[in-house]
Lab assay of single mutants.
Amino acid sequence: ATNIVSKVKWYNSTKNFGFIEQDNGGKDVFVHKSAVDAAGLHSLEEGQDVIFDLEEKQGKAYAVNLRIK
Rank of each mutant, 00 (worst) to 15 (best):
K69V: 15
V64C: 07
E21I: 15
G47S: 05
K60R: 13
S34R: 10
L44G: 00
K15N: 06
V36L: 15
Q58A: 13
V29F: 10
K60S: 07
K33N: 04
E55F: 14
L66I: 13
K7C: 06
L54D: 00
I4K: 09
V64M: 07
G40Y: 06
V64Q: 05
G59T: 04
K57I: 11
N65K: 07
E55P: 00
K57S: 12
F17G: 02
Q48E: 09
W10N: 02
D37R: 14
R67S: 06
A1M: 13
I20H: 01
G18Q: 01
V64D: 03
I20G: 00
V5T: 11
Y11K: 00
V36F: 05
I20W: 00
L44N: 01
V29T: 06
T2R: 12
E56Q: 12
F19Y: 06
V31G: 02
T14M: 12
K15E: 04
F30E: 01
V8N: 00
V50P: 00
N12C: 10
L66F: 00
E46R: 15
A35H: 06
V8R: 00
I20N: 00
Q58H: 14
R67K: 09
L41F: 10
N16W: 08
K9Y: 03
K7H: 09
N16C: 13
D28C: 07
S34C: 11
Q22F: 14
N3L: 06
S43Q: 11
S43Y: 13
V31T: 03
N3R: 08
V5D: 06
G26C: 11
N16I: 02
V50I: 14
A61Q: 14
K33R: 11
Q48I: 09
V36I: 11
N65L: 03
S6I: 04
H32M: 05
N24P: 10
I4W: 06
E55L: 13
G25Y: 08
A39M: 06
E21Y: 15
E56C: 14
I4L: 12
G18I: 03
L44W: 02
V31W: 02
Y11M: 02
S43C: 12
I51V: 11
G59Y: 05
D49M: 15
I20S: 01
E21K: 14
D23E: 13
Q48T: 09
Y62D: 03
K69D: 11
H32W: 03
V50T: 02
D53C: 05
K60A: 08
S34L: 11
L66T: 00
G25A: 09
T2C: 13
K60F: 11
K9M: 04
V29S: 02
N16Q: 13
K7V: 08
G26F: 10
S6R: 06
S43L: 11
V64P: 01
Q48V: 09
I51Q: 08
G40W: 05
Q22H: 14
R67M: 05
K69L: 15
K69M: 14
W10P: 00
S34N: 10
I68T: 11
I4C: 10
A1G: 12
L44Q: 01
W10C: 08
K7L: 05
G40N: 09
N16S: 10
N24V: 10
V8H: 00
E45I: 14
E45M: 13
D53T: 06
H32K: 02
K7A: 05
G18A: 02
E45T: 13
D53M: 04
F19R: 02
D49N: 11
A39L: 08
Y62L: 05
N3Y: 07
H32Q: 03
K33Y: 07
T2L: 13
S13E: 10
K7R: 12
K15T: 07
W10Q: 02
S34E: 07
A1E: 10
L66A: 01
G18T: 02
T14I: 12
K33P: 02
I20A: 02
N65E: 03
E55T: 09
L54I: 15
N12D: 11
Q48L: 09
I51C: 10
L54H: 04
V31N: 01
S34I: 10
H32I: 03
Q22K: 12
Q58G: 14
A1W: 12
K60M: 10
V36E: 00
S43I: 11
I20V: 06
F17D: 01
G59D: 07
S6M: 06
I20Y: 01
Y62E: 06
H32P: 04
G25C: 10
T14D: 12
S43P: 07
F30K: 02
K27G: 10
F30S: 01
Q48C: 09
K27D: 09
G25N: 10
D49C: 15
L41M: 09
S43G: 13
F52M: 04
V36M: 08
E56M: 14
H42E: 13
K15M: 14
F19L: 04
W10A: 02
S6L: 05
A61D: 07
S43E: 11
A61V: 15
Y62G: 03
A35T: 09
E46F: 11
R67T: 06
V36Q: 00
K9P: 01
L54N: 02
Y11D: 02
I20D: 01
N12S: 14
E45G: 09
L54F: 07
D49H: 14
S43V: 11
A35E: 10
K9G: 03
D37G: 08
T2W: 12
G40Q: 07
K57F: 13
E21Q: 14
V50E: 00
H32V: 03
K57Y: 14
I68P: 09
V31P: 00
F19T: 02
F17E: 02
Q58K: 12
F30A: 02
D23N: 14
N12Q: 07
E46W: 12
G59L: 05
G25E: 09
E55V: 14
S43W: 12
K15P: 01
N65C: 06
G47L: 04
A35M: 08
N3M: 07
E46L: 10
A63C: 04
V8G: 01
T14K: 14
K33Q: 11
G40A: 06
G25K: 09
S43M: 12
I4Y: 07
N16V: 03
S43K: 12
A38K: 12
N12R: 08
K27A: 12
K60L: 10
K15Q: 07
N24H: 12
Y62Q: 11
K9D: 02
W10M: 04
D37F: 14
I68D: 07
F17T: 01
L66H: 01
H42C: 14
A35Q: 11
A63G: 04
K69T: 13
I51L: 09
F17A: 01
V29Q: 02
D28A: 05
L44V: 04
A63H: 01
N65R: 09
E46N: 13
N24T: 10
L44I: 08
N24I: 10
N3A: 09
I20L: 15
S13W: 10
K60W: 10
F52I: 06
E56F: 15
V36K: 02
K7I: 08
Q22T: 13
V8K: 00
L54V: 13
L54A: 03
T14S: 13
K27P: 14
D53Y: 04
A63S: 02
T2A: 10
K33M: 06
D23Y: 15
L54W: 05
G47W: 05
Q22W: 15
D28N: 08
N65G: 03
L44A: 00
E21W: 15
E56P: 03
T14E: 12
G47E: 04
T14V: 13
L66Y: 00
V64Y: 05
A1Y: 13
V8A: 02
F17C: 04
D49Q: 14
I20F: 09
D28M: 07
G26T: 09
K60H: 09
A38F: 08
K57M: 10
K27V: 10
G25P: 09
Y11Q: 00
A39K: 03
K15S: 08
A61L: 14
E45P: 07
L41R: 05
V8L: 04
I51K: 05
N12A: 07
K33H: 07
N24K: 11
T2S: 10
N24G: 12
G47V: 02
I68L: 13
A38Q: 10
V8E: 01
F19M: 05
K27I: 09
W10V: 02
E21T: 14
S34A: 09
T2K: 14
S43R: 12
I51T: 10
T2M: 12
D37Y: 15
Q48Y: 06
V5I: 12
G40T: 04
A63Q: 02
E45F: 15
V31F: 11
G59H: 06
K60P: 03
A1Q: 13
G47K: 06
F52Q: 01
F30Q: 01
E45H: 15
A63E: 03
Q48N: 06
I4H: 07
S43D: 11
G47P: 01
L41K: 05
D28H: 06
R67C: 06
D53S: 05
E55D: 08
G26I: 09
Q48M: 13
T14A: 13
T14Y: 12
Q58Y: 14
S13T: 12
I68H: 06
A1L: 13
L41V: 09
E46Q: 14
L41A: 08
L54T: 06
K9I: 06
L44F: 05
V5E: 11
V8W: 02
A39S: 10
A38S: 09
F17K: 02
H32Y: 05
V50Y: 03
K15L: 15
A38M: 09
A63P: 01
H42R: 13
N65V: 03
Q22S: 15
E56R: 13
F30T: 01
H42L: 13
S43A: 12
D49R: 13
Q58T: 08
G59E: 06
F30L: 04
Y11N: 00
V8Y: 01
K33C: 07
F17Y: 15
T2D: 07
K7N: 05
E46V: 14
S34M: 10
Y62W: 13
K15Y: 11
V50W: 01
A39T: 06
